[in-house]
Computed example of a mutant assay.
Amino acid sequence: MENQTFNAQILSIEGLKVSPASSVPAFVLLLLIYVFIMVSNVGLVLLISTERSLHQPMYLLFCNMSINDAFGATVVIPRLLSDVFTPVTQRYIHYYECVLQAFASHFHAGASHAVLMIMAFDRYMAICNPLRYAAIMTTRMVVKLSAGAWVAAFISVAILLGLTIRLTRCRRVIMNPFCDNASLFKLSSQNLLINHIYGLGSAVVILGSSLGSITLTYLRIAIMCFSSKNKVLSSKALQTCATHLAVYVIMLVSSFTPMIMHRNPQWADSGKVASVMFHVVPPALNPIIYGLNCKELRQKIISVFYRSEVKISQDKLYRNN
């Protein structure tokens, strides 16, 4: 059966490999993480959307990141939660659902790199060209750059998955916690040279452009800050950049950890679990990092909680009277 080409629409998916004794703790932990990701990221988007003082390019880009993070987590985590209590031999997924999940997973990754590159450009313009910043980084420009990032990621991933779904399949087992392009084209016994070339080429272009642009951008920012006579402004600028770099490093570590583990047989199973990190760790940490390090956001968050507490206190006082 494995060597015969067929068009089976139902695939078997490995999912998370957890023992029966660990099913409940794994489910609870993953559910809590997902709830936190959705509440923190959606809350950040709502806060920025409703506060007119935060309608600035930097915060609009935060919205982009939060929307993408919530989307990336939703692509993977709900499916993992639904499979935790299902035996590995009974975990199935329809082929078109697997393709959609793979598309969304890669789209999330591509959009993450693109949005962070735009954020680096925004910080560069704000610090190195402050007099031209307001004229260049308008709301319209931010919308154009954001739309360009999402469209570029969409087209790149559409080609990637298009090359995969053209293949005939002779296997039906997805050896991964969730569907991605590699696990899909491994279902075929056809020549995969074109898939490997495009997949590797697109990964090199995305990683190379993001690493190159962010490295050059922040080198120029660092040089300008260290040569500036205004140490207060330089310190503030470096702190803002450090926040962005921390987010980028977390994303890279989450991306490369499973790739390294997959190439060591003794870590193969751990590498499969680590592949979920990209959809869990950055979406959970990004709102914390920006919320704690961005003074304006921190003040708005505190003021929202303060107003809520005052309103609750007033309601209690009104009821008691």
Rank of each mutant, 00 (worst) to 15 (best):
Q4F: 08
N7Y: 11
A8W: 01
I13Q: 06
G15L: 00
K17F: 01
V18M: 01
V18C: 01
S22G: 00
S23A: 10
S23N: 02
V24P: 00
F27W: 05
F27Y: 08
L31F: 13
I33D: 06
F36Q: 03
F36C: 06
N41P: 07
L44T: 15
L46Q: 13
N64Y: 05
S66P: 14
N68P: 12
N68S: 14
F71L: 13
T74A: 14
T74L: 13
P78T: 08
P78H: 05
D83F: 07
V84F: 02
T86W: 04
P87F: 00
T89R: 12
Q90R: 06
R91I: 02
Y92P: 10
H94T: 10
Q101E: 11
Q101C: 04
G110M: 12
G110W: 07
A114M: 09
V115M: 05
I118S: 04
M125A: 13
P130W: 00
T138P: 13
V142A: 08
V143R: 12
K144S: 00
L145C: 05
A152H: 02
A153H: 06
A158G: 02
I159A: 06
L161T: 02
T164G: 11
R169H: 12
C170S: 15
R172C: 05
M175P: 04
A182F: 13
Q190W: 09
N191C: 11
N195G: 09
H196W: 15
Y198P: 04
G199P: 09
V205D: 04
V205F: 14
I206G: 02
L207I: 15
T215N: 01
L219K: 06
L233I: 15
Q239E: 09
L245P: 07
M251H: 06
F256Q: 00
F256E: 00
F256P: 00
T257Y: 08
M259T: 09
M261F: 15
M261S: 14
N264K: 13
P265H: 12
D269N: 08
K272E: 15
V273A: 14
A274N: 07
V281Y: 03
V281G: 05
N286K: 06
E296F: 10
R298C: 02
Q299G: 01
V304R: 14
F305L: 10
Y306Q: 14
Y306G: 07
E309F: 10
K316V: 11
L317E: 03
